[in-house]
Nucleic acid binder design. Structure first.
Length: 465
DNA sequence: CGCATTTGACCAGCGC
DNA sequence: GCGCTGGTCAAATGCG
């Protein structure tokens, strides 16, 4: 107990510069001093000024004694007082610096610890998801091996089994930077064989906007380059394919097609997320895709959804189609396998009543949410505020108001969302059995239906993959 | 001349 | 296994 105070005294003495004067008297009698004795010395009052100014803890006692003894031995030396004060302040300054340094170090450690914990949490989540991936992959791999043992040479087998098989195919196809959507539907849909950025099963978001427009495309603030045009089955209007040219390698695509029944309705489908900064005029639409991706990502971390989306049954083109009463529904959530789909209708006339902004999650019954903890991110995602989905440019403000009003007032939206999410969770084919009336069908169902070739008559489709 | 668009060909998945 | 369909590529073409 005595040792620390003695050391402190010695340090204080050294800092005070006493030793330089060769006056050993103070130092000599210090060890004999006790704190109790110190308080009895009348000279404390003289140095109390210093102590009160900058000494918050008990170090002051010994140091004050030290100063007092010095003052006593050096009688009324004013210079000594000043020097002592200066040294005293220096000492305090150093101590504060050290304390500050320690606090900074502590803060760094805490921050690092926090980040480390965060990383571990994310890693744990990812591991959980990948575990499910690998379950499916191992099954698929075994099937593939069996097929390859029968049909292919060892060289091709080796190549097929290599982790780069998807990329290789892309290279052979001449599109290394833009993996095709087909691949996500095909045997590679498990995704873990692709590069890390593409490993997420829902690396792209698809947002399809149906709106009345006379223009060939909707001005969404991005730069697009047309790379193809096809005649889609059941629709006399050709479908145009665009890719984002704002950055090299941006994976975002969009498809533009007019509705067969009403050529004034333009369907614009966005896929993927931009990998580059966007101009303000484009951030709204990008926020839409991000929101869709975020929603899907939230659901993807749940095993049910993940299994559903990566399971072979889910990849069949008919396993996710639902009955949406789109004739009166502005926004629905659907899925054309393996893409869950939200459907919005921006073609209806705006309703007079305009309720306040609504969170999408407010209309999802809790029982239908894939995972309460995961879906919380949706609730906290301001991008899912539907009125924020579109910017000032396109679609028009009326459309936004239409969406807002209709979603708030249309009970079918709740039912549609519930049906869609429950399908996502369940992922069973039985979900498709009795929903032929108002099926949202982009592929099989719709392709065979001349009335609704690609998208329902009055729906805007948000889908993600 | 450079860039964007057009258009036929190609590829892969899926259903029959 | 074959044909259909959707999606993409890339050479040809058009435009400023």
């Amino acid at each position: 107990m005595e040792e620390p105070s003695q050391d402190r005294r010695e340090i204080a003495f050294l800092h005070s510069g006493e030793f330089l004067r060769g006056d050993s008297s103070s130092k000599v009698h210090q060890p004999n001093e006790s704190p109790v004795e110190d308080h009895h010395e009348p000279s404390i009052k003289e140095v109390d000024f210093f102590a009160a100014k900058s000494q918050p803890y008990d170090l002051s006692h010994d140091e004050l004694n030290l100063v007092n003894s010095r003052l006593e031995t050096s009688s009324d030396d004013g210079d000594d007082k000043t020097k002592t004060q200066i040294h005293r302040l220096k000492l305090e300054l150093e101590r504060l610096h050290e304390e500050n340094h320690k606090l900074k170090h502590l803060l760094d450690e805490i921050s690092e610890s926090y980040n480390d914990l965060q990383r571990k949490v994310l890693l744990a989540r990812q591991t959980q998801v990948e575990g499910l991936h690998k379950q499916h992959e191992s099954i698929a791999l075994e099937d593939r091996r069996a097929m390859e043992m029968n049909n292919e040479t060892p060289a091709t087998t080796l190549k097929r089994l290599s982790p780069d098989d998807v990329d290789d195919r892309d290279l052979h196809r001449g599109s290394p930077k833009t993996p095709r959507l087909d691949q996500s539907k095909s045997t590679t849909n498990h995704g873990e064989q692709q590069n890390p950025h593409d490993q997420l099963p829902f690396r792209k978001a698809r947002v399809s906007v149906r709106a009345r427009s006379d223009a060939t495309t909707v001005n969404d603030g991005c730069q697009w380059r047309k790379y193809g045009q096809k005649m889609a089955k059941g629709n006399p209007c050709p479908r145009a394919y665009y890719r984002c040219t704002m950055a090299v390698g941006c994976p975002v695509r969009k498809q533009v097609q007019r509705c067969a029944e009403d050529t004034t309705i333009l369907t614009t489908t966005y896929e993927g997320n931009h990998n580059h900064p966007l101009p303000p005029s484009a951030t709204a639409m990008a926020a839409t895709t991000s929101a869709a991706a975020a929603m899907l990502l939230s659901g993807s971390t749940t095993s049910n959804l993940h299994q559903t989306l990566s399971s072979p049954s889910a990849t069949s083109s008919s396993s996710f189609y639902h009955n949406f009463p789109y004739t009166s529904t502005i926004a629905t959530l659907s899925a054309s396998a393996p893409f869950p789909t939200i459907t919005l209708d921006l073609t209806n006339p705006p309703r007079p009543l305009q309720p306040p902004p609504l969170l999408l999650s407010q209309y999802v019954p809790a029982a239908f949410l894939p995972n309460a903890s995961q879906i919380r991110s949706i609730n906290n995602n301001p991008h899912l505020l539907l009125p924020n989905l579109f910017g000032p440019q396109a679609p028009s403000r009326d459309m936004v108001d239409t969406v807002r009003a209709a979603i708030a007032m249309d009970p079918n939206f709740t039912a549609a969302l519930a049906a869609a999410i429950s399908n996502i969770i369940g992922g069973d084919k039985e979900n498709n059995n009795n929903n032929d009336n108002n099926k949202v069908d982009e592929k099989s169902g719709g392709s065979s239906n001349g009335d609704s070739p690609q998208l329902p008559q009055s729906c805007t489709t948000f889908s993600t993959n």
